[in-house]
Amino acid sequence: MDHEAVLAAYDRQLRRDAHTDSPGARVERAGAVVRQTGAEHDWNGVHWADIDATTADAVIAEQVRHYTALGREFEWKLHSHDRPADLADRLRAAGFVPEPPETVLVAEVADLPTEPVLPEGVRLLPVTDASGVQLMADAHEVAFGEDGSGLGERLAKRVLTQLTETPDTLVAVVAMAGDEPVSSARMEFCPGTDFAGLWGGGTAPQWRGKGIYRALIAHRARIAAERGYRYLQVDATDDSRPILERLGFVPLSVTTPYVYTP
């Protein structure tokens, strides 16, 4: 894989030319910034900023004013190759709080396994309606505990909206052990780009290490191949990164969410 070429495509297609990931949100090109603004349960934040040391502070302040006026918490999605080099320090000085960094990993769909291998007693259930979305939220809660319950509820609202209004932009699935949801994952499509994004995959503690996460990757890789996407992209935690690298994903950048709460 040509790292520089793929990184340039990633920046251009997913950040500078970003499309909304929710029917209720809009992507705005406001001066030097590409940002998304939506409802409270939507992702609100900055995708891209064409700034330097002389303009960064003013642009940061303008985003704070914009989202604060709407009463929205928002995220500046900082990448390790973004400029200026001290942008992280400037965001902290403006009141942003960093969350744990994740590694942006990319793989060519053609190089990935596409046949899911599941442990005995586990099946994959496609999510197509409100009952499936509730199973996703339940799986998120068993995977992450009470700390993840609020996120699970917000995610459920967003997924249900996408399934209802723009079903061609999303595939979601729940891993079921009998009648119990033990993991869930989704894939979001960016029409007109080479990339499909993988999200989720957190698994209930007693089911970890049994291949469910890898099976969810293979399931989604098959669908991405059928739809003609070239790359799968993941913002990977330290837990999932080793699994993904063994499957053939390679690091592209490191992304850190800087969150501002009005």
Rank of each mutant, 00 (worst) to 15 (best):
L155C: 08
T169A: 07
A185P: 15
A175P: 10
R158V: 03
G200E: 15
P191Q: 01
E188R: 09
M187Q: 12
G202T: 05
L155T: 10
T161E: 04
F195P: 15
T166D: 08
D168P: 07
G197R: 07
G197Y: 08
L155H: 04
P167S: 04
W199Q: 12
V174N: 05
S184P: 02
R158F: 04
T161Y: 01
T193K: 00
G178A: 14
A204M: 10
P205N: 03
E188L: 06
P205M: 01
D194W: 00
D194M: 01
P181I: 04
A177N: 07
V171L: 04
D194I: 09
E165L: 12
W199D: 13
V159E: 01
E180S: 13
V182R: 07
R186W: 12
F189D: 12
F189H: 14
Q162A: 05
T161N: 01
A196I: 13
T203C: 11
E180R: 14
A177G: 09
P181H: 01
A177V: 12
G178I: 11
L198A: 15
A196K: 11
V171M: 03
L160I: 04
P181K: 00
A204H: 10
E165G: 06
T166N: 04
M187C: 09
D179R: 08
A196H: 05
W199H: 10
G201M: 10
C190G: 11
P167L: 00
L170Y: 14
T161P: 01
T193W: 00
V174A: 09
V182F: 13
V182E: 11
A177M: 11
Q162G: 08
